[in-house]
C-alpha cells in the first residue's frame, strides 16, 4: 500500500513538474531566517502550516495563537494575523477568538509543556466543548526555550536537566498520551499523531495538518495534530541521531497514526 501511495505522490509532484519549480518556500512563511536550532522540528512544522494555508487560500482569514515556548515568536515567521497567549492558555484564547469570529480560521501552535503540562485543563475543555479550532501540538519531549527540562512527554529514563539520572516513574510519573486522552471526548473530531523525522513522515504530517484544517473549514469541530519533533540541542544528539531516535524510540511509545477521525 505504501508503494502505491508514494507513486501517487510522485505523480502529483511530476504533474507539477511542468513548472520550473517543484518545491519552494510557501508564501505565508516570511522569507527570514528562523531562530530555531539546527535540525529543530519546529521549523518544519511552521512550513507545513504555511503550505496548508497557502493551498487552502485562507491566509487572509487565518488567525494564529502562538504559545509560550521556543515558538513564542512564531509571528515573526508567519505572514498572517497572530496573537500570543499566556503559557498554556492558547486554547482558551483561541476559543475567545473563534466564538466571536466564526468565519475566521483559528489555530493554536503549542509545545508539550504548553499543552500537556500547564495547559491541560484548557486543551481538554476546548476539545470537550468541540471548539471548531485546529491545534498543532509539537511534542519534542523537553522544554526547549528554558533549557531542556523534563516535559510531560519526556520518556521514561530520558535524561533532561531536571531528570539528570533519567526520568523515573516513581518520582516523575509516566509520559502522558494527551491525544489518546482527548480521543474519548465526543467534541474532539480529528486527532492524528505524525512525525517530521524523515521526508516521508513530513509528507504524512502535511496531509494530517491539511485534514485538521479541513475539519475546521468544514465546521466539523475540534481537530488536533501531534507532531513528534526533533530537539537535537536538548537531546544532546546530532540532528540525524535525533531523527533516528524518533523513528526507533519515541514513535514506539507514541505510535504514529490517526487516533480518531470522522
Amino acid at each position: 500500500m505504501k508503494k502505491k501511495r508514494l507513486k501517487k505522490i510522485k505523480n502529483t509532484a511530476i504533474r507539477k513538474a511542468e513548472e520550473v519549480l517543484a518545491f519552494s518556500r510557501p508564501k505565508s512563511l516570511r522569507d527570514v531566517e528562523l531562530h530555531y536550532c539546527a535540525g529543530c522540528g519546529h521549523s518544519i512544522v511552521h512550513r507545513l502550516i504555511c503550505e496548508t494555508i497557502d493551498e487552502f487560500g485562507i491566509r487572509e482569514r487565518v488567525i494564529g495563537v502562538a504559545p509560550v515556548g521556543c515558538a513564542v515568536i512564531a509571528y515573526d515567521y508567519w505572514d498572517f494575523d497572530v496573537t500570543e497567549a499566556a503559557h498554556g492558555r492558547t486554547p482558551a484564547v483561541a476559543t475567545g477568538i473563534k466564538r466571536v469570529l466564526p468565519g475566521n480560521i483559528v489555530f493554536t501552535y503549542q509545545g508539550d509543556g504548553d499543552l500537556a503540562a500547564i495547559g491541560t485543563a484548557e486543551i481538554i475543555h476546548a476539545a470537550n466543548r468541540g471548539e471548531n479550532i485546529t491545534v498543532i501540538f509539537v511534542n519534542n519531549g523537553v522544554y526547549g526555550m528554558t533549557g531542556g527540562q523534563m516535559a510531560p512527554t519526556t520518556l521514561a529514563g530520558q535524561k533532561t536537566v531536571t531528570t539528570l539520572e533519567g526520568r523515573t516513574i516513581r518520582n516523575d510519573g509516566y509520559p502522558i498520551k494527551i491525544l489518546e486522552m482527548l480521543s474519548v471526548l465526543p467534541g474532539a473530531k480529528y486527532l492524528e499523531r505524525v512525525s517530521v523525522h524523515s521526508a516521508q513522515e513530513i509528507l504524512r504530517a502535511k496531509r494530517a495538518i491539511s485534514k485538521a484544517f479541513k475539519t475546521q473549514i468544514d465546521n466539523k469541530g475540534f481537530s488536533i495534530v501531534e507532531v513528534l519533533s526533533m530537539c537535537p540541542t536538548y537531546w544532546g544528539m546530532t540532528s540525524i541521531q535525533s531523527a533516528d531516535r524518533i523513528k526507533n524510540e519515541v514513535s514506539t511509545f507514541y505510535p504514529i497514526g490517526v487516533i480518531k477521525s470522522y
Binding site: T83, V93, R99, E122, R129
Partner: peptide, 22 residues
C-alpha cells in the same frame, strides 16, 4: 452575544483576551 461558562476563572480571562484580540 457569546456566553461561555469556562473551566476556570483563569480560562475565562484568557477567553476574554481572545475575544478582545478579535
Amino acid at each position: 452575544g457569546v456566553f461561555i461558562q469556562a473551566e476556570s476563572e483563569l480560562a475565562a480571562i484568557n477567553m476574554v483576551f481572545g475575544a478582545s484580540v478579535a
